[in-house]
Design a protein around this nucleic acid. Structure first.
Lengths: 186, 186
DNA sequence: GTCTATAGTTCGATAGAC
DNA sequence: GTCTATCGAACTATAGAC
């Protein structure tokens, strides 16, 4: 829900309805909406971190730089299937001005960047380009570009260069159904 | 204000205070908050489009592909000085699910992409990479990464590869002061 | 652990004066 | 054109029952 509507727009009522519980219980369980979003942001960043660490642990040490980047990119593409993770992070990354979420947002972003730089041993050029592609993918998800892709040649082109030749497979594996079904306004 | 807080978070009251007018007058002038954000999103996209068109009109026709990309990138870097434009667009791009703002968001994004592809004659690879870098810059703005950049070597690295050797000059030319001063919560 | 009911606040929009 | 005042809806959080 936060991935779809952001922090302010993701009401505890909509979250409760999606979870099939009462609004009061959502607040009571997490203490406040702020704590809930903080936990959701942390969880999303932890998930991306874990996925990257798993890929890196699979390295033998004699992969080329291109091969390391390819494998991390493939893992990121797989994350697209769960829209919520990447879109929640994207919303967190717009909260740099916030005294509570700003520090979490910057720490989360830099923590993952450090893993790519230090553990995956990617060069500054390669790492920044890797993150740039990731942010483009996030943006295309937020735009729901995959849904209109068939009508727009350039939309397809962007998805293709973001996700490679598996873009159709990846896109069709994910869905926004939960957020759509439970939210008032589609 | 919308660039800082997004559509839902940017209240008409905060907008009114920043503009030095009454909340009722904001709503009355634009009809509704929805119309106001729609106009703000259109204006931001129009501005980016106009900046790119101006750069392209300056082409003589015998620039290299790298040179065309360099000049467009420089123009985008200059846009960073006015945080509001790029951050408002970034928030618009998270509203793909919305029946009103979703079409506007996709049209705005693709309109600018078409200009880069067709008028600036950039290849699919170069254009998608150019947009990827742009989305990374937007994200770093949203994170307010420039403000902590001096403490974090990797934050500096990201800014540098996003904006080039002019990153300090560009960053210092912009400010979030307006949104900070007028909004309740900093 | 989970609910209903509701208090208290904030927000967008309207009414009406000047 | 612009304001003050205010209404009704939506939202977070709390109280209290089971």
């Amino acid at each position: 829900m936060f991935g779809e509507r952001g922090y302010v727009g993701g009401t505890t009522d909509a979250i409760a309805r999606a979870a099939g519980i009462s609004q009061a219980y959502v607040v009571r369980t997490f203490g406040s909406k702020e704590s809930l979003f903080f936990a959701a942001g942390q969880r999303a960043a932890d998930h991306v971190e874990a996925v990257f660490r798993e890929v890196i642990e699979g390295f033998t040490g004699d992969e080329s730089a291109d091969e390391r980047e390819r494998r991390l990119g493939e893992a990121y593409g797989a994350l697209v299937a769960d829209r919520g993770v990447l879109l929640t992070l994207m919303h967190l990354f717009t909260l740099g001005h916030d005294t509570v979420f700003g520090p979490l947002a910057r720490e989360s972003f830099l923590r993952i960047y450090e893993i790519v730089r230090d553990d995956a041993h990617m060069s500054p050029e390669a790492a920044s380009l890797f993150f740039a592609r990731g942010m483009l993918i996030n943006t295309l998800m937020g735009l729901r570009m995959p849904e209109v892709e068939s009508d727009q040649p350039y939309a397809h082109e962007l998805m293709f260069f973001g996700l490679g030749d598996k873009c159709h497979e990846i896109m069709e594996s994910g869905t926004y159904a939960l957020a759509d079904a439970e939210a008032g306004r589609v």
